[in-house]
Design a protein around this nucleic acid. Structure first.
Lengths: 186, 186
DNA sequence: CAGATTGTCTAGCACTGCTAGAATCGCCAC
DNA sequence: GTGGCGATTCTAGCAGTGCTAGACAATCTG
């Protein structure tokens, strides 16, 4: 019993190590630099070990994404707590997250399609983040369906984040663009 | 002179053939199925021929994207012409394009980062499409900067398109979400 | 028709994700 | 302690990727 639980603990630690290494490598050099070989070298194990923890590279990216949802939800919650203009603060925190951690943001919202999203089976942290957005919007929802309106607002933030990141929108007027969005939502 | 112009013509035709084959393959099976080998087989030449036309696979995707900008601009222009609610028509046309032709849409807005965007060097078709959006928005811009507002509206549409496509937003309430967006922009 | 040039292809490099089977390690009964 | 046994980990390799050097063939010129 004890010996088996130690093994499971070690296994869990190594799994965490893999996820962390993947995240750091992706943050430093982008996901295309995260190869199974480099990842294995980073955690000082051979490639096949990765496959005893995850079904494949996609699953590793998904695990990183799930971590990211928790981080994002925490950022949004903190932003909403420390201000009296919740909508502006939460929006800024969201865009800041996307800007500071583009690789994780990509894993969360642009890649790894295998995660359940708009269902109860979605990761709890994802619901938590969505709820932070929803609470920030609630005062401005009026008669509109809060869930739908939150989805729309999220989509707008996501569009700004991805288009800016991909060079489709210039960084310059970023704040004014956000200001326009906020004005249209209240 | 004549003989050289014939060669250049044949070369241009073959280049067009490559782009068309890449687009069709991507539309049928997604970009991950578009390998240089399959593409070469499709156009009935060997792989290195591709590299005498394009610097690499990215350049081929970019060429497909440029074609896509023209198609999208045409769709938006047609939508704006045949209606008296320009904003709704253009928005619906945009989302319809993203939904019907996801592979091309990805090439245009999610991949192939090498294209100049928010500069005069951007492809003419891109400016044309942007202008269609801007003209649809102009009546509702009020005192806001039309360019920035158009960028914002575009970002919102883009967010809706990509999140829906990636399974992040359920298809179901799609129309109501668009209705909310339109309501907030006029 | 010979020679030069242009164009094209064959073959191969270095890399990818992933896996079968060999080798090694750690635990347990004796 | 020590041998044996299972679980774990590694070495080696497969089939595929984008891309390219150098051999080959086709084409036009004098």
């Amino acid at each position: 019993m004890s010996i088996q639980s130690r093994r499971e603990r070690e296994r869990a630690e190594r799994e965490k190590l893999i996820i962390t290494a993947a995240r750091e490598l992706a943050e430093a050099e982008g996901w295309e630099a995260v190869t199974t070989r480099r990842l294995a070298e980073q955690v000082e194990y051979s490639q096949p070990v990765l496959y005893s923890h995850f079904t494949g590279k996609d699953a590793i990216m998904t695990a990183v994404a799930v971590e990211g949802f928790a981080d994002l939800a925490a950022d949004l919650a903190a932003a909403r707590r420390d201000t009296d203009d919740a909508l502006a603060a939460v929006s800024a925190a969201y865009l800041s997250f996307a800007d500071r951690r583009p690789a994780i943001y990509d894993a969360m919202f642009s890649q790894s399609v295998n995660l359940p999203f708009a269902t109860p089976q979605a990761p709890a942290a994802l619901h938590a983040g969505f709820n932070e957005l929803a609470e920030a919007i609630r005062p401005h929802a009026g008669d509109d369906d809060l869930g739908l309106l939150t989805e729309l607002f999220w989509a707008a933030l996501h569009g700004l984040a991805t288009l800016t990141r991909g060079g489709r929108l210039p960084h310059e007027q970023h704040d004014r663009r956000l200001g326009l969005l906020l004005a249209r939502f209240r």
